[in-house]
Amino acid sequence: MVAKRIIPCLDVKDGQVVKGINFLGLKEVGDAVEMGRRYSAQGADELVYLDVSATFEGRRTFVDLVSKIASGIDIPFTVGGGIASLDDAARLLDAGADKVSLNSAAIADPSLISRIASRYGSQFVVIAIDARQLDGRWMATTHGGHVPTDRELFSWAQEAQERGAGEILFTSMDHDGTRTGYALEATARLCGILSIPVIASGGAGSIGHIREVLTAGQADAALAASIFHYGQITIPELKRELAAAGIPVRL
């Protein structure tokens, strides 16, 4: 049985991890490879590196960084942020990324999904959807949740799957940063209608939240950032508790 995955997400700007990461009480900002290694050593199943650089120079630095990450870590990793073309995806594949995550570029041009998937395989293509509830409907947004689109979460996820996406990374912008738990009902509904894995994101504040989203929420993987970075919960204790609750995890 495929294990449920725990995925720390690291934000990278101009080649450096931004947002403090707190290991053993020591707050660090910096080396993306070293931080990835530490998470890997702690038992993270996969890593997501999100490029939040705003400049061309920053993006170029990111490709170099992806090569270093690929050399330095021995678990799969996904890269996202600013991927807008087949060429962008190809550069990141060549640099050693296992998967690319597409967000607003896929909304702007859904054919990008099938073009990348047919060239490099569905396992390489993650579609990230940042959604929030607007008048009772879950709508995809861009620009960190600030710009609404006319794409409804569930139909967009299904379309992405049909176009060849290998995975959906669903972030509830209503829950992101609140630490009050994931969007359980929406995640479960998404898992119910898709045949590809769903990574749940947004709202993790405790081990219980992660347990819930992997059971009631039916998610295949749980992504979190700050609770790991600030050392609020550690991956070994999280995994032990999930295993004790009967959830299949890699220990």
């Binding site: 045949s195 894995p197 039916q218």
Partner: peptide, 18 residues
């Protein structure tokens, strides 16, 4: 709970993960 009891298969293809 949402989605409980649905007929979605557990064994997804491709077999991807740990």
């Amino acid at each position: 709970s949402p989605g409980a009891g649905d007929e979605r298969p557990v064994a997804k293809v491709p077999h991807m993960g740990w």
